[in-house]
């Protein structure tokens, strides 16, 4: 008999955990070490597994004061951190990392009210540290996400701390409730709180491409696309995905490029053709400074220590 309070079907795969809920289907991959598929209303929202992100494309200020040299190992960590542990909890029962033969006792009809899966990523820094990304699928299908960074003495300051989502196709735009314009922790005062619509994925055309497009103190952002990569999908109707604050506001940027792509370009026209949406959701953002660009540091209050724990949460709704 169907239990009307357990909406989530759990598929205990041999390399993934599938969770199907109302109008949504999530696939958590053990091989890819993260959320591999996020389908809402039949549309795929992920091109690659979301990963912790630590880097930002070097600003002119960073270049002047040597910040990127000092923190260069975070560029490596941004590219090469990897999953080292998976922990699954279904309806408050810890299942560890269940794979066959343990999963042979399950069926194609496993139902739950909530499913939690945590991926622990080890950084490639020296010394190493861990970041744990915990996903919780709720009974109505929405997804809770918590990112926890383990502080580690001896590590250089973080350029940023976030979770990066790479979506399969470019967004037609995004809407957010937060601050007007491009904001950073040390550049928020002039912004006006409100709800804003942004067309496309604008890249701020700094003479030399660098970190841009950050939006601090955000309550919610909704990204809208109208294309997919699914070869059977000819529906060009807009569809959207929202990231919503839980305990505290978050920061985000929604760009067509990763930090590394921006880092590699010397002119705007050197950036590649727009193919994806890169949504970074950040719990900590370093300030941009501004006293000078030949040595002055960002003010101490806007640094991000890598030696202490950081944690942030948000939720995803279709």
């Amino acid at each position: 008999m169907a239990n009307t309070t357990t909406n989530l079907r759990v598929i205990f795969g041999d390399g993934t955990l599938g969770v199907a809920g109302p109008a949504c289907h999530y696939i958590f991959s053990y091989e890819r070490g993260g959320l591999e598929s996020l389908v809402q209303h039949g549309k795929e929202w992920l091109y690659r597994t979301p990963m912790p992100t630590f880097w930002r494309a070097t600003t002119d200020n960073d270049r002047g004061n040597g910040f990127s040299q000092d923190s260069a190992m975070w560029l490596g960590a941004d590219l090469f951190s990897h999953c080292v542990a998976v922990a699954i909890n279904v309806d408050d029962q810890d299942l560890g990392w269940p794979i066959a033969p343990e999963t042979n006792r399950f069926s194609n009809h496993e139902w739950a009210e909530k499913v939690q899966i945590a991926f622990t990523y080890q950084t490639t820094t020296v010394p190493k540290t861990n970041v744990t990304v915990t996903y919780q699928v709720f009974n109505d299908g929405h997804l809770g996400v918590t990112v926890h960074y383990d502080g580690q003495p001896g590590l250089p300051e973080l350029p940023a701390l976030g979770l990066r989502f790479i979506m399969p196709t470019p967004a037609v735009g995004f809407d957010y409730t937060g601050l007007s314009g491009e904001t950073y922790p040390d550049r928020m005062a002039g912004a006006v709180a409100g709800t804003y619509h942004v067309v496309g994925l604008p890249v701020t055309p700094y003479l030399r491409p660098q970190e841009n497009g950050m939006h601090m103190a955000t309550e919610a952002v909704t990204v809208t696309r109208h294309t997919t990569l699914n070869n059977t999908d000819v529906d060009a109707t807009d569809f959207s995905l929202s990231v919503v604050q839980t305990t505290a506001p978050f920061a985000f940027s929604c760009l067509p490029y990763t930090a590394e792509q921006l880092e590699a370009a010397d002119h705007i026209e050197e950036l590649p053709a727009v193919r994806r949406t890169v949504l970074g959701v950040y719990g900590a953002v370093r300030g941009v400074g501004g006293i000078d660009s030949w040595g002055a540091d960002v003010e101490p209050a806007y640094h991000i220590s890598a030696e202490v724990d950081h944690e942030f949460s948000f939720e995803i709704r279709g």
Binding site: I11, A20, I27
Partner: peptide
């Protein structure tokens, strides 16, 4: 059928193609 765009194109190596979608033994 997939290359006529009726059915979704899908590449997967070892795991069965229903991985994460259907539980089967």
């Amino acid at each position: 059928i997939e290359l006529e765009n009726f059915s979704q194109i899908h590449y997967i190596n070892t795991l069965y193609p229903w991985e994460g979608k259907v539980y089967r033994r």
